[in-house]
């Protein structure tokens, strides 16, 4: 039950987390998964991450550039667009307001 609930919270906010992880510059899929894993979200499977990256790219919030590497098959590097930054600021604010409301209600119920 707890794991299910965490999974659905995570699903609802993953696109924002991906956008946030690109604010310091470009990155690639596995590196984003590692960053988010290190931030406490656990192991993020490629099957969850790449469809989100694709949707963000389709929506014009990130752009991807494929670069071949000397060793290995090459990677797609993602970077944030101006529209992506705007959506991150706007949706991030909404998420924080939502988080604030949840905290307030839980605090009133004695959950701290």
């Amino acid at each position: 039950m707890t794991a299910d609930r965490r999974a659905s919270w995570f699903k609802g906010v993953l696109d924002l987390l991906v956008l946030a992880s690109l604010t310091d510059g470009e990155s690639y899929g596995y590196d984003i998964a590692k960053q988010l894993g290190a931030a406490g979200f656990g192991q993020i499977k490629g099957g969850t991450l790449y469809p989100v990256l694709n949707r963000l790219e389709e929506a014009g919030l990130v752009v991807a550039e494929f670069r071949a590497t000397a060793k290995g098959p090459g990677r797609r590097y993602y970077s944030l667009t101006a529209a992506g930054r705007e959506v991150l600021a706007e949706q991030g604010e909404l998420w924080l307001a939502f988080d604030g409301s949840v905290r307030a209600v839980l605090a009133k119920a004695g959950v701290r």
């Binding site: 690639y28 899929g29 596995y30 998964a33 499977k45 490629g46 099957g47 790449y50 494929f66 590497t69 290995g72 098959p73 090459g74 990677r75 797609r76």
Partner: peptide
């Protein structure tokens, strides 16, 4: 082509099994 290459790089780096990693 680039999507498959990118995912191959991901698998090589994480060392996982394709079906477990991507479903």
């Amino acid at each position: 082509r680039v999507t498959v290459a990118d995912l191959a790089a991901h698998l090589a780096e994480c060392g996982g099994v394709a079906e477990e990693e991507f479903g």
